[in-house]
Design a protein around this nucleic acid. Structure first.
Length: 413
RNA sequence: GCGGAUGUAGCUCAGUUGGCAGAGCACCUGGUUGUGGCCCAGGGUGUCGCGUGUUCAAUCCACGUCAUUCGCCCCA
């Protein structure tokens, strides 16, 4: 083959494409029930938007974005995540002047230049929900319950919800100080190279390091929850209480630190033990300062993103849809009648097919079987002459078959 | 950006101290002028990823390269 797809960019045929359609439909249904409306934003944005929202120092911005100049030299970027574009659209449309709280749902492809591996593509797909305009902890809880309901309704089990509270800018600063003091008190030579650097630039990320050495060193580190100020603590307590009331099991994880700079207070992540190294299937949190930081009003928000490729790896196998019929045409002049019958049935809302290539009777019967249709509709010269169709139930064991008028076939379904 | 593994038929994979290229599945045809699945019999022109080297001879050895994949990292 001369031209192939780009590394990390996948084609999807059934059953994978069916799985994606299914997930999107379920998401619209579940989140729609929870009051979310669908927002579609462009795939390409000004590069600056992502630098300002995700954070200039993050890995995503530093080395993972698809950034390029357009024909007039303006720097554009293929969105690496959805939240920034949603915020931009929200601010640009002055949505907050039309409604006090906006609940927005969006889905589509995202792009990051990373090394592909299981559950990680360069073009990947996310389902996103953002709730803007409410700082209530009930909003955090509602969003998380909606997410867990969605995951349950697409058939996922054995997921765990990890939660943490990063506090507000002021109490987080106090925690950072304490954490740095703790880290400096350790034998820092035992930390990995990344963590030696990170402990000053972004000390919270040291907690999230996967290296065994770092893990054991940080096991006794001060916990961010202990440093949450009374307001933050109370906020988080209400969230946890509401999740408990909603029977959503939660695991507190003081090491859960999100990779994007804009998060504060509630953060959460849904992980699976069953899909390899890329185990995080959904993640999100509160980002109260983000809209203001992007030039909008001082409006709070919470949201999450859900990785569809990773969900697809966990999705239980679903049986493919069974068509209602397959028409077999045999003999002179039968193909026109068969073509008409297929169209008529399809217009009545039934699903089915026929072979346009003809072929032997046996060949057409094999196609009928392969299509998994419930009924095989046979039109031969004899049937044609009588205006009838022989109907064979393909799911029955024996040779059950009977003849019905062509106009009355649909009644059998 | 860094490591490991793997590239042989449409798919999953065998294979040879270096000597004519294999299986299962799938697909097609037939066994039955018009009855699928099960069974049986047939049906393959594969640049053995690509390039270079070693050799009388390379799918096999060496080097390079590209691709895929699993990890690291990062994140959904």
């Amino acid at each position: 083959m001369s031209v192939t797809s780009i590394k990390g960019f996948a084609d999807m045929f059934p059953p994978e494409s069916d799985a994606f359609t299914f997930m999107e439909a379920k998401a619209r249904e579940v989140f729609g029930r929870c009051g979310f409306v669908e927002l579609r934003t462009p795939i390409v944005e000004h590069t600056e938007l992502f630098c300002r929202s995700i954070g200039e120092e993050t890995d995503v911005v530093q080395k993972e974005m698809y950034t390029f100049p357009d024909r007039k030299g303006r720097m554009l970027t293929l969105r690496p995540e959805a939240t920034a574009g949603v915020m931009r659209a929200y601010i640009q449309s002055a949505r907050h002047t039309q409604e006090p709280v906006s609940k927005l749902f969006t889905t589509g492809p995202m792009f990051r230049y990373e090394r592909p591996q299981k559950g990680r593509m360069r073009q990947f797909h996310q389902i996103n929900c953002e709730c803007l305009g409410s700082s209530s902890p009930y909003t955090d809880a509602e969003l998380i319950v909606a997410l867990m309901t969605f995951l349950q309704e697409i058939g996922l089990r054995d997921l765990s919800l990890k939660m943490n509270s990063l506090g507000c800018p002021s109490c987080r600063a106090a925690y950072k100080k304490a954490l740095i003091a703790y880290l400096e008190g350790l034998d820092t030579e035992l930390l990995c190279d990344d963590c030696k650097r990170r402990m000053h630039t972004n000390p919270l990320r040291v907690l999230d390091c996967k290296q065994e050495g770092c893990k054991s060193l940080t096991a006794a580190a001060p916990t961010i929850l202990d440093y949450n100020c009374p307001d933050c603590r109370q906020h988080f307590d209400v969230v946890l209480r509401m999740l408990d009331a909603a029977k959503v099991p939660v695991t507190l994880d003081s090491c859960l630190v999100r990779g994007l700079d804009y998060y504060c207070r509630t953060t959460f992540e849904v992980v699976s033990g069953a899909i390899g190294a890329q185990s995080s299937v959904a993640g999100g949190g509160r980002y109260d300062g983000l809209i203001k930081q992007l030039g909008g009003a001082d409006i709070p928000g919470v949201g999450f993103a859900c990785g569809m490729e990773r969900l697809a790896l966990l999705l239980p196998q679903r049986e493919a849809l069974r068509p209602d019929f397959f028409v077999v045409a045999m003999g002179q002049g039968t193909q026109d009648a068969a073509f008409g019958l297929v169209n008529s049935l399809r217009r009545q809302g039934f699903a089915g097919d026929m072979s346009h290539a003809g072929g032997s009777f046996k060949s057409q019967m094999r196609q009928a079987d392969k299509s998994r249709a419930r009924f095989c509709l046979i039109i031969g010269e004899e049937e044609l002459a009588q205006g009838k169709v022989s109907v064979k139930n393909m799911l029955a064991e024996g040779k059950e078959q009977h003849s019905v008028p062509m106009a009355g076939v649909a009644e059998l379904f």
